[in-house]
Design a protein around this nucleic acid. Structure first.
Lengths: 159, 159
DNA sequence: GTTAATATAGATAATTAATATCCGTAATTA
DNA sequence: TAATTACGGATATTAATTATCTATATTAAC
């Protein structure tokens, strides 16, 4: 049980998009270049973010991606769900049922505690937004760093 | 990110061992038979529980496994750690670092929130013990069911 | 209308992780 | 000694994740 790479990539892609001027776009190619990740795989992730309504996309010469929701409204949990889906972390393989030869509607003993643990986990993700990460980024980075990123963005942004 | 099958198998194995008379043992073969899981893979899991000090083992004709710790002292979190290890759920792939061309000692922005979420998750697992699951099992199962399990155990237990 | 650049969708391939098995060794009991 | 059980590590199989490919659609510039 490990968190896969998709969430990290998606969150940082969103943080980059969050630095664009209003209505400006950035291509998937530029995003993947900046993040040093596979362009085709990031496209797949971006599609998920579009389908989740977090990002909007425009195909074509001046196309690309931009934030659709506001950064205060984008919870990290939203990003997680967009990338991973809503299924529970815990899925019983039927050991309990096999042990007792139970009907399938009977709930696995572990399910309740695992659901509760998952909700506790989710609630932390729900109170962290893109805006708070953006703030954390500004707080912990040097001006030099941020300036570099922003000028790199400026060269590639589509208005 | 899904919880793997090992935790479920381990927890139910422990619940079976918890129903044995004091000092009595049950072989790995019997455990896997009752749980309807792969015997060799369950052996692997049992080895981990032994190494974690939750279970003790005796090789040989009258060998097998028995609980070492008391059920009130065995948190589900302990089982999780025994089976999965203590490494964090979240592991940065260095996207943040690549983006900013940072030194490796700089903490990924996501790490703090993911650690906090993981602690919240852990704390639920920590307050659930084998004893509480044992109680839940007794509360939700028919006497018929439990009697069947216990008589099955009685036929295979090693004293 | 054509061309180039970009996103989309789904299929396929490559890589990694999880589960299962095997083999040899060690320990115990009859 | 032989049989039964656990242990340890290597190997095999299966499943999941990440990466890529192909075809299609959309957009802007010419």
């Amino acid at each position: 049980m490990k968190i896969k790479t998709g969430l990290e990539q998606a969150v940082y892609a969103l943080l980059l998009l969050n630095r664009l001027p209003k209505h400006a776009m950035l291509s998937g190619e530029s995003l993947s270049e900046k993040l040093h990740v596979s362009s085709t795989y990031l496209q797949k992730l971006m599609r998920k973010l579009v389908q989740a309504g977090l990002v909007s996309s425009v195909p074509g010469v001046k196309g690309g991606f931009r934030l659709l929701a506001t950064p205060e409204d984008i919870q990290i949990y939203d990003v997680y769900v967009a990338v991973e889906g809503v299924e529970s972390l815990y899925h019983s393989n039927g050991v309990f049922h096999a042990m007792f030869q139970l009907a399938e509607n009977k709930t696995c003993l572990l399910s309740d505690v695992m659901e509760e643990a998952e909700h506790a986990w989710q609630s932390v993700l729900k109170r962290t937004t893109l805006a708070s990460l953006h703030q954390a980024l500004n707080n912990t980075s040097t001006n030099d760093c941020l300036t570099k990123i922003d000028s790199w963005l400026k060269e590639r942004v589509v208005l």
